[in-house]
Each structure stands twice: as C-alpha cells, then as structure tokens.
C-alpha cells in the first residue's frame, strides 16, 4: 500500500506539471484558458431551489405564477427580475436596452439575437469584455440590460453574467426567461450568425 501511495504522489506531481503547462499554452485562447483563481464565482454551499418543483398542494406566492402541470415560475431569480417574451420584445424594439448573450462564444457565433453582445462568464475574457463595454460609452449604468442564455431552468449562465454586470455597476438588469431557443422560434428573422452582434432593425 505504501508503494501505491508513493506512485499516486508521483502521478499527482506529473499531473501538476502537465495541467499547468496545458493551461499556460492556452493563455491566448479565452475559450480554453482558465484563470488560476476563479473570479466572480461564489457558488456557496446552498444550492438554488429546484426549478421543476411541483407546488400542487401549496398556494403559490404572489410573485409566482402557476403554469401548466402545477409548476410555478418565479418572477425573479437570485435577485434579478425575469421577463417573458412579450416584455423582451418591447425592450428590443424600444431600442434603449442592451442585449447580452451569456452562452459560450461558440454558441453565440452559431446564432444570437441580432444586436446582442457576447459576455460568457465561464470564459476568461469576461472581465475584459465588461471593461470594454463600460469604456465604449454605448451604455450608461442605468441603461436596461437584458441577459439571456438557454432558458432559466437549464442555464445559470444568465445569472452569472448578470451578477458580474451588477458588480461592475450596472443597475437595471433583467433576465430573458425563455432564452435564445424561444427567441429563435418566435423571431427567426432577428437572429444573426457570426462574431459580430449585427444591427438591430
């Protein structure tokens, strides 16, 4: 057993070398590189409440609305208001709102809401992107921002990005409940592919 332990220590040492070298090699690639100490991540020990929890026997709270099957949909998630498609569309055509795609860059490039910028909190360049956004002067801190990913039940990316934007000073952040799949389905003409955000109509 002592030999097994010594061998394990040897493997761990090689792993430390290989992992460090691999991460350093990926330094120029934000889609692969990870900061050594994660920034802006504070998962905490208490997980968010289950999102599919049935509330058939309980009376729904005022801020929750009951949908088919008895499941309730909260009006906010981790302190950020969630808005449905109609409200998102109103924000979009209102013109003042900035749309932020919180999914991975590869998903953004495959298709995003026309005019939306990409800020994925899992990629190492998110701080730089928020810094650029603030320096660009395109949006002020009170401007409405709509963050989206897949949908609120299956994607925490919106919440992470919203959290990082909030810490940067943005005050009016909302989360698009249906996310990109709903938008793609209902507004196929307002989807852009590629690295550029595209121009809002």
């Amino acid at each position: 057993m002592k030999i097994a332990l010594l061998e394990l220590v040897a493997i761990v040492l090689v792993v430390l070398l290989a992992g460090t070298a691999y991460n350093l090699v990926n330094r120029g690639n934000p889609q692969k590189y990870l900061d050594w100490v994660s920034k802006g991540l504070n998962p905490g020990i208490d997980p968010p409440p289950p999102r599919d929890k049935k509330q058939e026997k309980e009376t729904p709270k005022e801020e929750e609305k009951v949908v088919e099957g008895g499941a309730s949909e909260p009006a906010e998630i981790e302190g950020f208001p969630m808005i449905g498609h109609e409200d998102v569309l109103a924000e979009y055509h209102g013109g003042a709102a900035l749309f932020v795609d919180a999914r991975r860059t590869r998903d953004y490039e495959a298709g995003h809401i026309t005019g939306a910028i990409s800020i994925c909190s899992w990629e190492s360049d998110w701080e730089e992107k928020i810094g650029r956004l603030m320096q660009s002067g395109e949006v002020n801190l009170e401007a409405p921002i709509v963050v989206y990913c897949v949908n609120w039940k299956n994607c925490d990316d919106s919440v992470r990005t919203a959290d990082n934007l909030k810490r940067a000073g943005f005050m009016n952040i909302k989360i698009y409940k249906g996310g990109f799949p709903e938008w793609q389905q209902k507004e196929p003409g307002l989807v852009t592919q590629g690295k550029e955000p595209g121009k809002k109509p």
């Binding site: 692969k32 994660s38 991540l41 998962p43 968010p48």
Partner: peptide, 19 residues
C-alpha cells in the same frame, strides 16, 4: 476546460477559488 468549471460550479459544494 470552462465547461468542466461550470459543471463543478453546479455541484454547489466547492469554494469559488478552487473551481
């Protein structure tokens, strides 16, 4: 690697700095 970081985050068991 960022995808795996996201998986670890979703366990809600580990301190942010270790993820």
């Amino acid at each position: 690697p960022p995808d795996f970081a996201k998986v670890i985050y979703n366990y809600h068991l580990f301190p942010g700095v270790l993820i």
